[in-house]
Structure formats: structure tokens, C-alpha cells
Design a protein around this nucleic acid. Structure first.
Lengths: 262, 262
DNA sequence: GAGTGGTCTAGACCACTGT
DNA sequence: CAGTGGTCTAGACCACTCC
């Protein structure tokens, strides 16, 4: 026996895919769909819930149900790391010109609202393991948010961890009011004699938690990409661990791998 | 006024996060939860649906609702491309030893079931644009699936496109029965004098379509990572475009970026 | 067979949007 | 204010799992 709400969802999904229902178009009201299909409103809602979870429609309370428009804006690429390293030894005037977020989004710094908060903590077991330091080592946790001045949601959620003793030689690095730091983390590390040799980035994807959905203003039917970045210095020490939560529908990650010539 | 189903979901989410409900544990039945919270069963179902969409629980019809166990198995890294290029000129005996999937999953080829299908098509506008060739150019579409012999779902869904004229000099490349080809695509291209110079990979994430969920056997509350890979040869021609659909909860992507030394 | 989740109803009332 | 989606009920019946 075919399930009514799946059949209705299939109908609508087909109509959206083949363009009968174009992006931005309004669907018939739930009551109207119920009448058309000879079903109750809750059954229609069940069908629409499926499509919403698939990211095909947006329901707007009081207004209607609409076919979602696809979107992708920012591109995050892996050339950024070399770009940052190159800038890390440049004069402050150059470093202050533009940051990584500006580079990615193509916006100018006047359009961007920046937020940073620092906090010290003793390493819990997972972070201690990741850094290869004893549990209880003092870490500096740095939380960053950058958003477009015309929007409410930040582009992503960033939390970075440093080993406090590794950077304490420069007290400026412990003060959040120095953010945004011209030249970013690689310049900060450079001021205490650390040169970054390589960066490992690990990705997975999953549905957002309610907290992430709220902070990133994510509609139903989207995913987040979780990026865990580990920076190694030239002595193979782990000098930074950063976790980034990225909206899956707004950002594209671009990696270029150059191969050795024959 | 607080919404009943959100409050119930919050309660259960908190219990799962702080470990009161451990992975694998069974939740009380819907009827029991309804009684505990003084709500109707459909309201409980609404709450559980939220948690299911977040990937926190699995509902098993007739059996109960359980806290989901997290999982990640395969790691896909970007050293694979250089590894494949190095192998592309090796003797067949070496190339036949092991393939990219074995390398990623740590399995041996006896554990793997391989499937390939070839099809010719004339380039639609999006692919023509991507390749930079006229619309209607003949392409070879290659569809691949690899799965563990003990499982039903493949690790990912792969579709590769080649320009037919670019490879037609070697008729073996047009015959799907030659798959799995020892040494993979880079060796195939090598047989017609093509050397790959660099590979661009673009990632986004979104919820699975029903088709993807079925083919990859994805439970509710998971995401897929979409990978679009473009291979450039040493003359800067695009020689291959590949789309890969990857389960977000099973695979981790690892990229290492080496930086120039100061 | 007992217990579980899955589907569906008919209708009520509420909250939000746009005119 | 009319129309939309959001929440919730009380209960029916079905489908699946496991003992």
C-alpha cells in the first residue's frame, strides 16, 4: 500500500525538479493541497515536511510555502594558507590592508563586522590528546565571528586553540582587544618565532545542531560542514587547532592539488 | 508560550548530550513518553522527529527508538592524487596490486565489489561549459560503485566525464568491461599521452535526495558531501570532470597543504 | 501475541503575514 | 481581516519486531 504523504511529496518533488514549480514560486496552500489530493491537512504537512528536510521548499508562516532558491556565495580555498604565510612577514601597513575573510568573500572591510573573544582553559582530554600535551595544560581559546554588516548571521563559527606557554612571550597575543590582528594567526605566531610548515584540514558534514542553526540562521534542510584544521610548525609541533562550522549551502570549499611533473 | 514538542525534544537532547542516555540506549516508548509528559502521541512523535533530523536518534519500526552511535570509517586524502600519478607509469603488475578504494578503506580487493557502467552522451550546456567545449560534443560518462562485499550500500556514488575524442586513440578506454582498470584514470589518460598537472576539488554539503539516501542506505539525519573534481593536463586542458556523492557521516576528507619555507 | 513505531483523520485553536 | 502555516488532540488502524 502506497503511503499518501510520500506520493504527494513525490508529485511535488517531480514538479519542482522538472521546473513546473520554479524557484521562488508559491505552492498551493495546505488546505488547497488537502482538497486536491483528498487528504487531511496533517497528511499534507507530513509531505511538505519531507520536502523541507530535503531543502527543496521554505515554509513561511502566515505567508505560504515556496520553492527554495539555491545559493552559494563564499569560496574557501587552500591557497589561502600560502597567501597568509606570505603576508606574515610583510610590514603592518600591508597586512592591515585586507584579511582572509575579505579575500574569500570579495567584500571590503567596511562591510564586515568582526567579533573576537579570548578565554583561557585547561586542556580537556580530547584537546590534550590532539596537541600531544598533558591534560591540564593551559590553552588559549579564541572564538571568532565575522558577518556582513547588512546581515545578522556570521559566515561561519570559528574556535581556535593555542598552547598558552608557546605564545606567552608576546603578551599582545593574549589580549582579545588586539583583534582583528593584521596578518592573522600566522603573523601572530611569527612574532614568537614560530613558522608554520603545513596545515591539515579534515572535513565531515552533518545536519546542524539547533544552536548552530540559530547562530548561522540556517533554514531547515541544510547541512553544516565541520572543518578541523591542525597547523604544524617546522619542528613538527602542533601549534594551532581550529574548528570551523560552515553552512553547507553558502560556502564552497576549493582545494587544488598540484602534481609533480614527469 | 513554549511549544510542547520543542520542550520535550530539549529534554531528550540534553539527556543524550550529557550521557544520561548513552549511544545505543533505548528511549521509552512513544506511549510512555506521552504519559510522562502529559501529551498526546503525535506530539511526542513531533519531538522525536526533530531529534531524528538532527541525527541524534534512530527509530526502528516495531522495535523502539535508540540513541544513535556516531561513526566514521573511510578517510579520503589529497595525497591520493600524487599517489595515483606515481603509479600511472608503473608496470601493470604493480598497478593491479591495489587501487584507490583499497588505499582509503584499508580493505583488500577480495572484500570489495566493483561496478562500472559506460555511456556516451552529447554534452549538455552545463558540462559543455565546464569542459570549455561546444554543446553537443560527445562525452563518455562513466558510473562507478564500490562496496564492501558484506554490505549492501556503496561507499560513494561516482560519475566521471571524459571528452570522447580526447581518448578515442585507445579503444580499450571505451569499453566498460576493462574496469576496474589497473592504475585508474591517470593511467588510462597516460595511455593516450595525457599527463595530469593539477586537480581542483570543490565541496559543498546538503541533505541527501531520496535517491541518494536509498542508494547509500543513509538514515534520516545525515548529510552528503558533494565533490566536484576537475583534472587539468599539463597544457591546461580540462581532461576529466568527476562528481562524487559521499556520505557525510562515514567519510572524512583530509587535505594537507604544505607551505613554502622561509 | 504483546509491544513498538507509522499513518491518518477531523477538527480545534493559535500565530503570523499582508492587504 | 482574510488567509496562511503551526500546534495539538484523541483515537483508529496498520506494520513491524521480537519473544
Amino acid at each position: 500500500m502506497p503511503k499518501a504523504y510520500e506520493e504527494i511529496a513525490d508529485d511535488l518533488r517531480r514538479a519542482i525538479r522538472n521546473g513546473e514549480l520554479k524557484p521562488g514560486a508559491r505552492l498551493p496552500s495546505e488546505a488547497e493541497l488537502a482538497r486536491q489530493h483528498g487528504r487531511s491537512v496533517p497528511t499534507i504537512q507530513n509531505a511538505l515536511r519531507l520536502l523541507s528536510a530535503e531543502g527543496l521548499i521554505d515554509k513561511r508562516h502566515g505567508s505560504g510555502t515556496f520553492v527554495r532558491r539555491p545559493r552559494t556565495r563564499a569560496i574557501r580555498d587552500n591557497e589561502r594558507h600560502q597567501w597568509e604565510k606570505d603576508r606574515a612577514r610583510m610590514p603592518e601597513a600591508t597586512r592591515a590592508q585586507t584579511g582572509a575573510t575579505e579575500r574569500e568573500t570579495g567584500l571590503v572591510s567596511g562591510d564586515l563586522v568582526f567579533f573576537a573573544r579570548y578565554r583561557e582553559l585547561t586542556a580537556p582530554s580530547d584537546l590534550a590528546d590532539a596537541f600531544g600535551v598533558p591534560e591540564g595544560t593551559v590553552l588559549l581559546e579564541r572564538t571568532y565571528r565575522t558577518r556582513h554588516s547588512a546581515e545578522t548571521a556570521p559566515f561561519n563559527l570559528v574556535t581556535s586553540y593555542l598552547v598558552r606557554d608557546m605564545i606567552a612571550a608576546n603578551p599582545d597575543l593574549l589580549d582579545e582587544t588586539n583583534e582583528p590582528w593584521p596578518g592573522g594567526t600566522q603573523n601572530q605566531l611569527h612574532t614568537v618565532g614560530i613558522e608554520v610548515d603545513r596545515i591539515e584540514e579534515r572535513f565531515t558534514a552533518r545536519p546542524p545542531t539547533p544552536e548552530e542553526a540559530r547562530e548561522l540562521d540556517l533554514p531547515a534542510g541544510t547541512s553544516v560542514i565541520l572543518l578541523r584544521k591542525t597547523s604544524y610548525d617546522i619542528h613538527d609541533r602542533i601549534v594551532d587547532i581550529t574548528a570551523v562550522t560552515i553552512p553547507g549551502d553558502r560556502t564552497e570549499l576549493l582545494f587544488t592539488t598540484h602534481l609533480e611533473r614527469w
